[in-house]
Design a protein around this nucleic acid. Structure first.
Lengths: 216, 216
DNA sequence: TAGATTGTTAATCGATTAACAATC
DNA sequence: TAGATTGTTAATCGATTAACAATC
């Protein structure tokens, strides 16, 4: 399946959205769809959909369109959702707890195998059935458990040191909720950022832009 | 200040990141920086930084560079962070609670004025000093309090009806954490999505893409 | 077969990068 | 003044859209 060469970032970022819409069609028992119909629903052009899909192969059929089920499964495979990457979560505060309980890791190619926090009073607490472990045990845990990715839900200030520590333990893949930018710390890591502050500021800009009076 | 015409989406999406980096420089008491130095730190080109900033005005000085403080303040103004938009949060589950407690709304141009949930047992619980209110009181609350934006932290299934209800109450701005896509429901709304599932799937793709053996 | 819709090439559009004159 | 770095125009690159022949 993988690896696909030369797929542009914009294309990849659209894949989960296709997957989501196809999943909804599937639930509504829609069996086939044309690029035209899908483009109407999603608010983009039919051309773009066909271009995007054809980066990975010809999934459609002339005169018919695409099989919803078939396309859904294909995109799932392309995204690699059939994997089972092991992930640990660092930071069992409000955000970490929410991420741990809220996400269907298994449906997205991951498995949550450990939760760590520096607050010893949280030790042993169960979140999603997983006991919170003292961060001091990180090294021993990682030496005993193959760890593919780390989810960072820690404060900005402790992020660089933590990232360094995880890097030393061989972890190269990060889902980063911290407000600190670790993307440029090493050049052999993969970082997917969730910058909630950035997102909220962009909303603020867009509201301001829509509401404020134009200059004379 | 606002409104800026014809600013492209990629430029806007980079602004919060500039703001973040400048904030860090400020904390380190750096007073001036050139586009070149900033580009090194951020991992983009000096040309792009100068192009981006010049969409809004000439903030630099030839032969000198940019004043960190000045640029930071300017970008804050451009983003509209000096606003005080009122926002309500719907859904006081793990995610809603995390968002409510975790975000510095005031620093991002917002003020959280209400929290709603359909679970009556949560009524009255304080989150960030704000009592959780029964969702049935939404209409009366909104008629008494000017509400600029809604933060959606509810399950996928209840999202479309809720969005409809909020739209009827005159709310046009949404920060959407739900896995349901409300962007296309109306054409006069502003929606900033936080699709955690999408983000996790993209991480999955990127790990798969980096690890899997290339086809022969 | 005729109609529909894909896969794919070509044209357009927009964003990024390079270059350099202006100027602090 | 000389050196540095911006603001801005021009060149390049990449992504999106349009068009249409292939084909189910």
């Amino acid at each position: 399946m993988h690896k696909y060469e030369n797929i542009s970032v914009p294309v990849i970022r659209r894949l989960p959205r296709y997957y989501r819409f196809l999943g909804e069609l599937l639930q509504k028992d829609v069996t086939r769809i044309s690029s035209r119909e899908l483009s109407d629903k999603m608010g983009l052009t039919a051309s773009q959909i066909r271009q995007d899909l054809n980066c990975f192969g010809g999934f459609g059929q002339q005169g018919y369109g695409y099989s919803v089920r078939g396309l859904y499964d294909q995109i799932g495979k392309i995204l690699g959702l059939d994997h089972n990457y092991s992930a640990i979560l660092i930071g069992a505060g409000n955000l970490g707890k929410a991420v741990a309980t809220h996400m269907s890791f298994e449906k997205r190619g991951f498995q949550l195998i450990g939760i760590f926090d520096s607050d010893k009073s949280k030790e042993g607490t169960l979140i999603r059935g997983i006991p919170v472990t003292d961060i001091e045990e990180l090294e021993s845990f990682c030496s005993q458990n193959k760890t593919d990715a780390a989810i960072l839900c820690v404060p900005k200030t402790s992020t660089p040191q933590l990232a360094e520590r995880l890097y030393q333990l061989g972890i190269r893949n990060f889902w980063n909720f911290s407000h600190y930018d670790i993307s440029n710390m090493y050049d052999d890591i993969i970082v997917e950022n969730v910058h909630l502050n950035d997102s909220l500021m962009i909303l603020c800009y867009r509201i301001s832009d829509a509401n404020d009076v134009p200059e004379a």
